[in-house]
Design a protein around this nucleic acid. Sequence first.
DNA 1: GACTTTAACGAACGATCGTTCTATAACACG
DNA 2: CGTGTTATAGAACGATCGTTCGTTAAAGTC
Lengths: 201, 201
Amino acid sequence: MGKGEQTRQAILDEAFSLASCIGVGALSIGVLAERTHMSKSGLFAHFGSKEELQLAVLRESQMRFGEAVVRPALREPRGLPRLRAMLANWLDWTRAVNLPGGCVINAAAAEFDDQPGPLRDEVRKALIALRDTLGEAVARAVAEGHLRPDTDIEQLVFEITGIYQATQQSRRMLNDPDAGRRAIVAFERLVRDYAVPPEKE
Amino acid sequence: MGKGEQTRQAILDEAFSLASCIGVGALSIGVLAERTHMSKSGLFAHFGSKEELQLAVLRESQMRFGEAVVRPALREPRGLPRLRAMLANWLDWTRAVNLPGGCVINAAAAEFDDQPGPLRDEVRKALIALRDTLGEAVARAVAEGHLRPDTDIEQLVFEITGIYQATQQSRRMLNDPDAGRRAIVAFERLVRDYAVPPEKE
DNA sequence: GACTTTAACGAACGATCGTTCTATAACACG
DNA sequence: CGTGTTATAGAACGATCGTTCGTTAAAGTC
């Protein structure tokens, strides 16, 4: 890895954890230069524009998410165990990677939902990719017979994302120590509902 | 209402819908002055500091939430119908009031979760108040016999907030036209789970 | 080790930020 | 109507914003 790539990565590391705290939109080149002990112009040269830097942070976030959440879960047997592992990794990934201030993309989703442009597009892409991944895992669980054949996959994914967001808000804003447990309770109740055969009425 | 209060309210109206789009943290006095056809200093005098303006926006948001979501629901019979009405109002309140860019407080919760200070405190206050309100409604539903006596109220509230957040993200970022329906499906399954008597095992 | 490429710096740009001050205009009240 | 009060404007402040430019130092290549 050349010198360029090396410092670019170092900048991204710092930008990543900074964005986690203050949001991707509030990133500033001056502050970032100070934190990385560089000049503004020197740092700037690596990205060409602030927006490109922000996009790089979002892409970095996606990559780390894949490595910290999705990939380890693939070691679990397909179906429900894998889905369960994925959720567990997801709920805790902000601790695993250097994310002192919570998931960058989730925060960006709330920040840019009404500001068209490349940043919003990138966030959207990430959210769709995540939902696809979750959807695949759910579909596998159906195929394995862990969930009912008529399971509404999108609905299940929808509710799982809700569980994640509720957990993050409870933890981060309300300091609720039970958030993780509540998430698991919600999830298990969810899959139990979709696991039992439909009742005759 | 004196002239002062009048323009102050006009400023808040504009700040409110602007913050809805770009976030409370990104509010700028210059832009706001332009939008309200005032001078920066004239506008500034009404609040004394930018932070005070932001706090005022958050308080305004709480007030409108109460009037658009909670108060109308109180007309419904207590218990499940009231809870159901509250969720319905909640899911659509960003359309009812002038909130082109989604709930200000929910966005602020993601923005300030790692930035201590009066703004975070105010957001926290709002979230707690909301959870209390929801909790009360759930408790009423238990008292009315709509839900099981051993219902974990906090758990139910936790999951309802998740449904809300999933709905907003699906609507705003993914343009999912089914988000509202999915929210209702999730909610009804939730209350059905807590309504039936516990199974003997 | 000489040469080329590239990475980093420092200074400066215009724009905007939040804030302060002073002066003038509009209002409220007797 | 006149007078005291309050609301608004305008100019200016230092700070920071993102970005550009020319130059120097370092890294990569033969």
